[in-house]
């Protein structure tokens, strides 16, 4: 829990900074995959591995996974339809049969209509969400953070010794 909270604070810090836009956008996009895929499967593990291996904002990923899981629940019927349509393509049956009987790959649960459907929808939305996140983060910094910094109460807060102590602590650790 502490680790998750730490990641969430780091996300907020990074969001309000002027760098790491790509990291945040990638995190939100990975969160989209995590939130959409219903069950714990191999692709979830792969996404986690990517999150840990690459410099992607983990807090953003967790937060977006949480928020994307809500529409995912409502979109289950759509995922099922997409997944079933893809899995019932007769020309792809030999490929699926091969994948189904290969080692490791069955752990992806690709033969489940909802898993397949949600994964396809998540992959399709991944670049859109990535680009949209980048734009929104930039807009947020420009329109919200900058204006906030100009407010009197924020300036007053920065002048307090408590803020100075925090600033020192943040620089040291």
């Amino acid at each position: 829990m502490t680790l998750i909270l730490k990641q969430l604070f780091a996300f907020l810090k990074l969001l309000n900074s002027d760098k790491g836009t790509n990291q945040i956008a990638a995190g939100i996009s990975c969160g989209l995959i995590l939130g959409f895929i219903p069950a714990f499967s191999l692709q979830t593990l792969v996404v986690f591995f990517i999150l840990f291996l690459f410099r992607i904002q983990i807090g953003a990923a967790f937060l977006s996974a949480f928020f994307f899981a809500i529409p995912a629940y409502l979109l289950d019927s759509l995922f099922h339809k997409v997944g079933a349509a893809v899995l019932e393509v007769e020309s792809l049956t030999p490929l699926y049969t091969k994948l189904y009987n290969m080692p490791i790959l069955p752990f992806t649960k690709f033969n489940n209509s909802i898993v397949m459907g949600s994964f396809i929808v998540a992959l399709a939305l991944f670049p859109i969400v990535f680009l949209l996140s980048k734009v929104l983060v930039a807009k947020y910094r420009q329109l919200v953070v900058e204006k906030l910094k100009q407010t009197k109460w924020f300036k007053a807060l920065k002048a307090t010794s408590l803020y100075k102590w925090y600033y020192k602590y943040d620089q040291l650790y």
Binding site: P38, D76, Y96, T97, Y100, N101, N111, I114
Partner: peptide, 11 residues
């Protein structure tokens, strides 16, 4: 329905 449908591709 909420669990979806599992397709079996065994040989």
């Amino acid at each position: 329905r909420s669990v979806g449908k599992n397709y079996y591709f065994g040989t």
